[in-house]
Nucleic acid binder design. Sequence first.
DNA 1: AATATGTTCATTTTT
DNA 2: TGAACATATT
Length: 830
Amino acid sequence: MNKILDGLNESQRAAVQHVEGPLLTLAGPGSGKTRVVTHRIAYLIEQGISPYSIVALTFTNKAAQEMKHRVGRLLGDSPVWMGTFHGYCARFLRYYGRMIGLSENFSIFDTDDSKSAIEQAIMNTDVSLTHLKLPDIIKGISNLKNRAITPEMLDGQARSAVDHAIRKVYPAYQKYLLQNNAVDFDDLLMHTATILRTNNELRADLDEKHRYILVDEYQDTNLAQYLIVRGLSLDYPNINVTGDPDQSIYGWRGADIANILNFERDYPNVQVVRLEENYRSTPEILSAADVLISSNTRRKEKTLIPTRESGEKVRIATYASARDEADHIADQIAVHVLQEEAHPKDFAILYRTNAQSRLLEQALLKRKLNYQLIGGFRFYHRQEIRDLLAYLRLVNNPTDDISFHRIVNVPPRGLGEKSLAQVSELARAREIPMLVALRAAIDRAMLSKKALSGAKKFLELYDELVNRSAISIVEMLKHVLHATDYIKYLASKKSEAPDESIEGNVQELLSDASEVDQNNEDGTGLQQFLEQVSLSADTDNLTDDNRVTLMTLHAAKGLEFPHVFIIAVEQDILPHSRSRYDANQTEEERRLLFVGITRAKQTLQLSSASQRGFGNNRMSSASPFLMELPRAEMQMLDYTMSNGRFDTFDDQWPDSSFGDSESFLHKPSKKGAKSSKPKEIRFEDFGSEFSEEKVDEPLELFDEPFSDELENAAQKPKKQDKKPASGIKEPGIQGIDGNDELGAFATKLLAINHQLPRGMKTASELGSSVTLTGTPVDVFEAGMRVSHPRYGLGAILSVDGFGPKKMARIAFDEGDTKSFQLSKAPLEIA
DNA sequence: AATATGTTCATTTTT
DNA sequence: TGAACATATT
């Protein structure tokens, strides 16, 4: 009993002890929401409620895992169902999908698959794309699904050309999906909602079974999700929704804030509990958040009550360029880390769009700060992974034509466009799956000799996979790899020696698969594996390794960090240009910033730059949101005149020379008598101390006990950190023992900090080894100064291609102009 | 079928 | 800006 209720404040306790009837928990950021939810689950069980009757729904796997973990800590293993909406629906449809024509081995199409499928469907209609944009159609269909509107429910009234097209494409798409025995993400929700809506008997049955429903982040539910939740809590309205209207940031995905705003209307006798005490952030941070969000009109008033002690002022920084912004932020992090005031993992850098991570990545790399990038390219979106999975998917669901198309000629088997068109025609005419059509085409001798042999080869491989599916997933994967010599094929396709990153990814996939194999008791392993893979998101890859975290504001929801930087708080970025003319969308952008601000526990910096963008000629102005903040109580920093020089270290560097590390021995004095003249320190200044030769000599720089760690930090963010060499303090900033060394180390580090270390992999390779969570880091771009061991210094004229094939033309100072494949050439940033 | 070259396009967030 | 797409070339 005590374990469950101890340490909770009054309102938290009220929520936890609520048992019967509807409960609305309005939980501000940092108010211990997850704690309440998990403790409530424990409390219910303690009251004798069957764990089988409790269902807890979240939006992300991460939130679900966290919940499981914490409930586990309170209760040990328990059969409470905790998972994502999509996961719940997938399971639901495995059972009841047949009601709408799905069999239990259906495929789940991700957005790419879905796009291909829509393209296929369009070919079955008379819709022409010449005057329409495919993304508009895709979005339109998704919007309908989010509102659980099936094709049958559409009336004939088209209000625009896109609308008109959608009315034709949507039914064709649904038909195509059904023929493929497949669903897309939106279908998972829509189909579930539809089945519940049209089968009251089943609905009532489940309502009774799932008597206690908990929904996290209720402000982010869309209509389809609303219908599902509603359907499951009609007869037994023991429903607890938790959320914060101020953190609703998924309107674009169909989330309807009205669901939470109207909850009290939907369910009579709602108990409302407000969690307003904030246990996360300093009063300074909360004040900024509070003042900002009060500019929103469409919201439920709510206060943030600080419980933490006062801390540093929130900073608003202005830079001349995005590059300065990145450099300065990385500098600040480096200094804190070097002084052992914080670990890399204490820092998060948040931004509006994924594209904005690049400069920061570069800046962190240059300083050898370890980071993890969340979002961007996803593991399961990599070509090698998708290809391999397509083989598995086709085995699991032979009617999955999208998977068929993906791999039928991968690696090339001579089944070119022409032959496949014939097969497609046959498939379409007879409404049979491609796989079946291919066999038929062979029987009817429709194929050329070359295509015939390719087709036979493919079918042979496929049939063998089916055989092995009885053994294990790993066996299947291994067979594909072996039979197709896949890695060699992919490497040659990318005109590259076998790349370890591809192998690494494949290895990762194999180990994921083997995990499922081991727990596969009921023989549904393959299906489970595919489902798990389809429904996994990249935010799930968040680790608590000691690394700086880079991610979008959206991805940051639910997380917290001691030190947060929010970058590019600029007009047209945040708020985003596409939300400019829509007051509701502007409010959502404001909420997004609110979410970002409230991630910070101790310090927070919001920054903008006046130049950002590709040609650095894009002028940018500060976000109007910055004007709404309580500026009087914040610290305003103007670095626009710094010209790459920052005074970050004014009070931290020794006065005299940098060789003198005296002042590093002690914590920097608290800016005592207002350090007379701010000294500006440029990194370039270190150049004289550490001449070119020295900088060029890696041993000199890395011949320290911690060199391993540094190298490792920069190169292999994903892999487990190497064991620290003995005598190294863990987890200091990569462990430096004694301030003496810290001084020397800091000086050296900063001296080279605009230089990527020799021996470090080139950008593209790095990109692939950052893989699992990350976007490739393309460090090289036109205009950059680089050095080549053979040809010396030069400037990049242009950069072409991408990935491992990315080429750069370089004009060397000695006169030659040469082209290099960036993934191979031993180039360094000069 | 693979490569080279030219063209257009669109620039958010993601389960 | 560059990346996806389309077309031309070998």
